[in-house]
Simulated assay, not measured.
Amino acid sequence: MTKTTSAIDFFSSVTDPRVERTQKHSLESILFISLCAVICGAESWNEIEDYGNAKVDWLERFLYLPNGIPSHDTFNRVISSLDPKELNDSFVAWTKSIAELTDGEVVAIDGKCMRGSSDDGTGTYTHLVSAWASANNLLLGQEKVAGKSNEITAIPKLLRILELKGCIVTIDAMGCQKEIAKVIIERGADYILALKGNQPEMKGRVADSFTYIKPSSEHVMEGKSHGREETRACTVITNLENILDRDKWPGLKSIVRIESRTKDIKKGTVHKETRYYLSSLETDAQYINHSIRTHWSVENQLHWTLDVAFGDDASRKQKDNGAQNFSLLNRIGLNIIKNAKVSSMGVKGHRKKAGWDNDYLLYALKSF
């Protein structure tokens, strides 16, 4: 393959699980065709095969295809049998080489369940925890949640393979754990961990602190979008005398309260909510308020886009590691698309353009 395909050089370290004598198609070709197809809108193994057959002349500019385009069964069988950890490690190595995380960049950690991936009707789904770099607009890595486990076990594994020095890691309530705080500090980052009802005693003490301890800093953020007016009041306290086990939380320096008020402009309805956080930051409320607000970009820029533009939630790939590995192809494709835009069209529009225009697809691949 030529230098123009350097965006997927990381595939070269992935082990081919097949017996050599059965290999009619190289692993490099299978992965490259799959990635190009996904970028151009393919959401199933059959669509990957169809894309390959439609673009075979173009693909032969980069690949040696003595046996033509693999069948959809071959794409399914080979990609589903790849070691997902090895594939993800290669993906993380790639993102480390292209991402330039800046001090203070918010890295949002959040989980997503692929609703279509249950294979037996019992409600057992593929559940992934992802790390999203807000300023870079990149997915940094993902970790599968073990079958009978939860995100608490997957989050530390994900954190340990990422480069996080100088970043601010934000996690919802499931990740508000001492061990997770410890890993974040060890990785040279700071944290803002949401505190909810799963830790009632801690939440109660934090809430009580705001009734009689003088705030260290306060900030109000106002905005209007999507037919709503929002006000977010952030209050930070660095006096932790009311937090009995504060010394057991590595790096803990402040507690945070966010009081949000959202008004539907058309309906006139108002929704109020108060949320609490633990943080290793000892900075001003404006900085923390912005960081917490930025966390939700993982929902809008990653999860929502994967579902709407890539059909990720509807995916019914059930064979072996098919769902997890195909989801990673989706995420690689999303990284490439989001960082190769040359116009204001949405992700779906860019996928179509890449499918129609080989030069645009090549431009996208060369962007990395």
Rank of each mutant, 00 (worst) to 15 (best):
V347C: 09
S225I: 08
L31F: 06
L65A: 07
D73C: 12
I258F: 00
T22H: 08
I237W: 00
Q286W: 00
N289K: 03
D359W: 03
T4S: 09
R18G: 09
A181W: 01
G175D: 06
T274D: 00
T15C: 14
R18Q: 12
V308F: 06
L365A: 07
L59C: 07
A364Y: 00
A194S: 11
S97V: 11
L35H: 08
W249C: 07
T238K: 10
L240P: 04
W94T: 04
I109R: 02
G268P: 09
T22M: 07
N136D: 11
L302I: 04
S13K: 13
Q23K: 13
V92K: 00
L35K: 04
K144S: 12
A233F: 00
D284Q: 10
V78I: 14
N136G: 15
N325M: 11
L164C: 09
N289E: 11
D208M: 10
T262D: 08
L35S: 09
K165N: 13
I39N: 03
I265A: 10
I79G: 02
S34A: 15
L101S: 02
S209T: 05
V19P: 01
H271K: 12
A354H: 04
K55M: 12
I336V: 14
R205S: 07
N242M: 06
V270N: 06
C113R: 13
N339E: 05
R275I: 02
E100Q: 11
I265C: 12
K272P: 04
H226G: 08
R18E: 12
D208W: 02
L164E: 10
D9S: 11
H271Y: 07
Y276C: 00
M221R: 08
P70I: 08
N53R: 13
A340N: 09
S209Y: 00
A181R: 02
R77D: 15
T126L: 12
E259P: 00
C167D: 07
A189M: 06
S71C: 14
